[in-house]
């Protein structure tokens, strides 16, 4: 699904990622954890194509193609979905329109016709229940005036409608109380399948109590310094990040 090799990325002159390697197979859930400033958000931004980052070395191969050559929208249409840490408010554009336009853009890319209006409404109403959101959210402007928890739920709703192949969750648990976290986690878990992979980027172990990863990686100083199973997360929770950083150094 995704192979990242020796990835180096700079912001301006400053190197942030310094030789990152990561391999994700279909259906796997990977958690990348790390202290602040380790390069976690940079990783999600580079993968989704946000401007402002220079990749100076290395490669990212997604389904056999060079992901880094694609425009952000082409990555999205190819099935890479980024759930934002800070979802953007888009006043004046309704939530349901964005969902429909995004789905149709993706379908067009796949050579399919536009989704039938009634089918679409049924689909969205089905998915919105999953996230325990009120239907009125569909008709509000995208994220405008949403609470932190509502914004994160809305991100997962978009993922549920678009059915991506690779779902990158950037700090999806930050700013959520435990009830909201459970709802978001249930939504994510319902999306898990043998073909769909997840890359969860998180600072806290708490999320992993609700979304069980297959692999846990520690990102420090721009590289993966340690990888393991779910037990690694518990160890990190107990001991903090410093011991891994020391080991790596």
């Amino acid at each position: 699904m995704l192979t990242i090799e020796n990835l180096h990325a700079n912001v301006g002159e400053k190197p942030i990622l310094k030789g990152l390697n990561l391999h994700i197979n279909p259906g796997e859930v990977h958690a990348v954890m790390g202290p602040n400033g380790a390069g976690k958000s940079t990783l999600s931004h580079v993968l989704s194509g946000k401007s402002g980052y220079d990749v100076t070395e290395g490669s990212v191969i997604y389904q056999g193609n060079n992901l880094l050559e694609l425009e952000p929208e082409m990555r999205a249409r190819e099935g890479v979905f980024l759930a934002f840490q800070y979802p953007v408010e888009i006043p004046g554009v309704s939530n349901i329109y964005l969902l429909k336009a995004a789905l149709n853009a993706m379908r067009k890319h796949q050579g399919l016709g536009e989704v039938d209006a009634m089918d679409f409404l049924m689909l969205v109403k089905d998915k919105i229940k999953l996230l325990q959101m009120d239907e009125k959210f569909l008709y509000r402007a995208v994220n405008e005036g949403f609470s932190g928890g509502e914004k994160k739920r809305n991100e997962i709703l978009q993922a549920a409608v678009l059915e991506p192949k690779l779902c990158i969750l950037d700090e999806t648990d930050s700013g959520l109380d435990i009830d909201a976290l459970k709802i978001v986690a249930d939504g994510v878990n319902s999306l898990r399948s043998a073909e769909r992979s997840f890359l969860m980027i998180t600072h806290y172990q708490r999320l992993l109590d609700y979304i069980k990863p297959d692999f846990v990686h520690v990102l420090a100083h721009g590289k993966i310094v340690k990888s393991g199973g779910p037990e690694l997360a518990l160890e990190l929770e107990e001991k903090g990040y410093s011991w891994v950083e020391e080991q790596a150094a």
Binding site: S48, G49, K50, S51, E71, P72, E73, R75, A76, R77, F81, L82, F84, P87, V88, I90, L98, A101, A102, L103, A105, M106, H109, Q158, L162
Partner: peptide, 18 residues
Amino acid sequence: DEKSVFYLQSRCMSEEQA
């Protein structure tokens, strides 16, 4: 706002459409 443009692009919209 470039953040908004990127957000829409990451939701399959072309830059122009965004």
